[in-house]
């Protein structure tokens, strides 16, 4: 079953300096129980794509358009207030990058999980509280009762990220969007959280969208990868195939530049230049100014994102 179906999504922001195109024609989908990694650098449009799928961007200044934007079979662009609220948390839940700022500092963790449960299901407070405590125990918080009554400032970042996962899972969503869930955490905590997310995904049969800038996180967690750059999809395919034989020059360069791949102190393969400015993107393929194999037409017209081999898509003139 198709949980998320996005065709030709564009997101722009109207700002004082002009219109910024954050996402420029994205197409992606997610099936039930599947895990997709969206990889990209800051400004690539990866987070904005997810926020748009849940209509979490303030409109205006954001402007969202798409040929299709369906979440759990519901047309998200046509949905209004109450319908959107019913969708969020229930069909699709989201966890965010910085757990320290993700909770309302004025209320206990327990209160914030209970209110999520009660927003979607008519549940007595005591029952909801018991469920919240069970969820906290499931995300491997030992002192679940104590954490239930704790305020956010009393907990560490790793503990809060666990609590946020518990909160996101409280209404058994079909899709979990994880937006850089471990970037703000220490490396050992990151490994624990990633493992926890993987376990929970398998256990609950959820779809997972893991948004990250870190290819290591992708290598750890997902079945399928979508590489974004400059608001566009560059490449899409099964994770092992992408790591073994990347098709797109950007993916190739990205994988080659990862530090620490081999023993010994050495210079790294670098990608010259800087990421495109979303307010003034280059004409044609957004990667062409930095691309080692760019041709004349790359700077004129953007290549279509199309199937190269079965299950693998890419946007590059050399592959068409």
């Amino acid at each position: 079953m198709r949980l998320l179906d996005v065709v030709n999504l564009t997101v722009s922001f109207v700002q004082h300096e002009g219109v910024v195109q954050a996402v420029r024609g994205m197409t992606l989908h997610l099936d039930a129980g599947e895990s997709l990694g969206i990889v990209g650098e800051s400004g690539s449009g990866k987070s904005v794509t997810c926020m748009a799928a849940l209509r979490l961007l303030r409109e205006p200044p954001a402007k969202i358009a798409a040929d299709r934007l369906d979440l759990g079979g519901v047309d998200v662009l046509a949905a209004r207030g109450r319908d959107l609220a019913a969708l969020r948390g229930r069909v699709a839940a989201m966890i965010f990058q910085d757990p320290m700022t993700a909770f309302d500092p004025s209320f206990t963790i327990g209160h914030q999980i209970v209110e999520t449960i009660q927003a979607h299901r008519a549940t007595a407070k005591a029952q909801a509280r018991a469920e919240a405590e069970a969820l906290l125990r499931r995300v491997e918080i030992k002192n679940a009762g104590g954490v239930l009554d704790a305020y956010p400032h009393q907990l560490s970042g790793g503990m809060l990220q666990r609590a946020m996962i518990a909160m996101a899972l409280s209404c058994q969503p079909q899709v979990l969007f994880a937006d850089e869930p471990t970037t703000a955490l220490d490396v050992t905590i990151q490994a624990q959280i990633l493992q926890l997310i993987k376990e929970l995904q398998a256990e609950m049969g959820m779809g997972l969208i893991m948004v990250t800038h870190d290819l290591g996180v992708v290598a750890e967690t997902v079945d399928r990868v979508l590489v974004m750059y400059g608001g566009r999809a560059m490449e899409q395919g099964p994770v092992q195939k992408i790591f073994d034989a990347p098709l797109h020059p950007y993916t190739q360069a990205l994988l080659a530049s990862i530090p620490g791949r081999v023993a010994g102190r050495q210079r790294l393969v670098e990608i010259a230049g800087a990421s495109p400015n979303p307010a003034n993107p280059p004409k044609g393929c957004p990667f062409h100014p930095r691309c080692a194999v760019a041709e004349a037409r790359c700077g004129v017209e953007a290549p279509a994102f199309q199937t190269v081999t079965a299950g693998r898509d890419a946007a590059c003139w050399r592959l068409q």
């Binding site: 490396v187 050992t188 490994a191 624990q192 992708v218 290598a219 750890e220 994770v239 790591f243 791949r261």
Partner: peptide
């Protein structure tokens, strides 16, 4: 060793279950 073990793998082939 726990720090090194926590570093994400470089290739999906190396995925493993970790104990912390």
């Amino acid at each position: 060793r726990s720090l090194l073990d926590a570093v994400p793998v470089q290739n999906p082939r190396e995925r493993r279950h970790r104990t912390f």
